[in-house]
Structures are given as C-alpha cells and as structure tokens.
Design a binder for these strands. Structure first.
Lengths: 150, 150
DNA sequence: CAATATCCGAGGGATTTGCTATGGTATTAA
DNA sequence: TTAATACCATAGCAAATCCCTCGGATATTG
C-alpha cells in the first residue's frame, strides 16, 4: 500500500513549478537540484506529465517547463493518477481497466476496496497546487518569525 | 498503491471463519478449498493472524481455527494492518516506525499522505466481519429470490 | 498407532522498482 | 555559431518484494 517515488518526486516537481509559476520556464536541472532528484529520472516523470497535459515545455536555451494551467486548477489527484496510474487498492476496482473477475457478482470484499479507492481519490482531489504553495508560504513565514526572536 | 494478496486472501479467510463462527474449529484445508487459495500460503497468513491475536488455533485431528473475538469485534482494518503492515501511502507517515527524514519539518507534501492514511484507516475500521457476513446473507437471499422467479 | 491437523523455517522464481547509461535529435537564445 | 535546453528510445541492472513451495516437526483424536 505504498506510493512509488514516481508519485512522490513528480508531485514535488509540480510543486516546484507552481512556486515558480509566472516566472517563465523552469529547467529540469533546476528542479532536480532543488528537489534532490536524479535529473534523468525526473525527465521520465515530467515527460509523462507533459503527455498528460499538466505541463507545457519550452524548448531551446533558457527553455524548461511551465504549468499548463493555474496552480489552483491542478489537483494532487491529477498528478498522482498520471504518475502512478489509476488509484485502486485492488486491481478489481480499477476504474480505467476493470479486469474480468468471475467472483465479481458475488464478491463481498469488493465494496470495501471501492470505498477505499473513493476515499483516497477524494482526499487527493481536495488539494491543489495553490493550496500547497500557500502552505509553503506560511511555513516559510513562521520559520522567519521564529528566527527573528532567537 | 496496491494491496498484496496477503491482505486479500487473509480477509477472505477471516470472512470464511466468521461465516462458520460458533461451529467449532475450521480447518485450513476447508478455507483453502472454498476460497481457492494455496493451503501452504494461507498457513503463513493465518499464522500472522494468530500471533496478532485475531484467531485461536486448535491443534490435532479435527482441529483448525476459530475467531478469537466476535465477528462484530473484528474490523477489516485490524486484519489488513496485521497482514500488510501499518497503512501508510509513504514511509514517512508510518505510525509505527516513523523513519527519520531531514525534510520532516519543512515537508509540504507530507500532510497529504497523512490525510490519505487517515482516510484509508477510517474506511477500513468502519467495517467489521459481522457487517460482511450480513452482506453475504443478503446477497445469497437476493440470488435465491432471483432463482425462484426464473 | 494412524490419521489429521497445526506449526515452523528455508528457499526460490518471477516481477517490480528505481534508477543509470548510452547516444543521440531538435530547437532556441544570445 | 555555440551553448543550453528539451525530447526520445532502448537497454541494463541490482535490490527489493511478491507469491508462493518444500520438507519436515509437533500435537491431538479416535
């Protein structure tokens, strides 16, 4: 029941882009350094995000990536589902490619997994990148306040 | 973000025990046959459940396993956490063995995983074996009703 | 004693994860 | 033109995890 690093790194990269939103293209190298992620690995993740339409790329020197929509318009769920595939604690409740299962009609435990799936999606969809940016600003401010009084 | 077969099989085995609750020890072979699970593999799962105090064993001929508590007193969460380990979409929000993480104090995304973890636990803890038995009885009845009118 | 069970530890093949490596091509700012 | 960037594909691979299997030892009933 763990997320892989794809989701973790990808979300951190997207948050990084959100924090630089409006400042022009952000290079992969910059993200990789700030987030301490292998640049090459990150390339694979961002490629998925681009194909899914969550980021746009700007090629050439001084190029990089920008968010394809406003931070408030991109939910954590959008990002995680691109990088990890559809949320489903069991294959049998995969919303995109529901596999055949002869037990399907008589399976008691199945409704549990549906409820788990829905509740995860609800949480992930309730948080967007703007929320996370606001949280980051708040955290930064409170730590500066703390520094001031040392 | 998948559960392994440990959780799936283990829960089905526990449901099987709940459905035979009060009828004396149920053998692994019986469970394995009804649930179509390898008996040897099931043995390992049930061993964990026994060590966790969810089932009691009766050794020897005519032996088997019985639930250690009433079906209504055993939640799906109890079972899944024994077999899959503590629910945590990311290691950093593992409630039992929180790993050290230098980002911990400044990590924005962490709160997301905490909320996901809590919502999964909430769902799993809201369902117990008696609920599932009731659902199974209902399903059986409605299918018999259906058969009657064919 | 024989049959039926649980109990236990070791092992092992297949798959997935989390990268790294290689070697480019295409595009653009300066 | 040059440097900096995105873009692409393919391959490899060590480590971990998953999903069991195997071969017993031990306990209980009849």
């Amino acid at each position: 029941m763990k997320l892989s690093t794809r989701g973790e790194y990808g979300l951190r990269a997207m948050l990084d882009l959100a924090q630089h939103h409006g400042e022009g293209p952000v290079s992969l190298r910059g993200i990789a350094e700030r987030q301490d992620i292998s640049e090459h690995y990150l390339e694979q993740l961002v490629s998925s995000l681009r194909k899914a339409g969550l980021v746009r790329s700007v090629r050439g020197s001084q190029g990089g990536y920008v968010l394809a929509r406003e931070p408030a318009e991109i939910s954590v769920g959008d990002i995680i589902r691109v990088l990890e595939g559809p949320i489903a604690p069991m294959e049998c409740v995969n919303e995109e490619e529901p596999p055949e299962c002869e037990r399907a009609q008589t399976c008691i435990t199945r409704t549990i997994w549906e409820r788990v799936r829905d509740s995860i999606n609800e949480v992930l969809d309730s948080i967007n990148l703007e929320d996370l940016c606001a949280q980051a600003r708040q955290l930064k401010q409170s730590s500066e306040y703390y520094m001031y009084y040392i």
